[in-house]
């Protein structure tokens, strides 16, 4: 369900809140995306696009969590082994 793909916001076109759009770069594919639900998104941010609409902004700090969590559980596993 619910295919949503992250892409980089490269420009924002002015417009009233419901029709505000921006250009999003998906690794070389440029698409005009509605930004009504991503009012905080700025140029260079990555937005998550579903059905032509940004439904959220990718949190850069949190993006590394998947690897951090893996490092933490592996670390605790190593500590267990040494105990």
């Amino acid at each position: 369900m619910c295919l949503a793909v992250p892409g980089k916001l490269t420009s924002i076109n002015a417009g009233d809140p419901l029709t505000r759009t921006g250009t999003v770069d998906f690794s070389g594919i440029f698409m005009t995306v509605n930004l009504a639900f991503a009012p905080e998104a700025a140029v260079e941010d990555y937005v998550l696009v579903h059905a032509g609409i940004a439904i959220g902004t990718i949190n850069k700090e949190e993006a590394a969590r998947v690897m951090q969590y893996l490092a933490e559980i592996s670390q605790s596993a190593t500590e267990d082994d040494h105990r």
């Binding site: 295919l3 793909v5 998906f26 690794s27 070389g28 594919i29 696009v49």
Partner: peptide
């Protein structure tokens, strides 16, 4: 290619 990959991601 990167472009084809990206298009495929977007369109499913």
């Amino acid at each position: 290619s990167n472009g084809v990959r990206a298009a495929c991601e977007i369109l499913g």
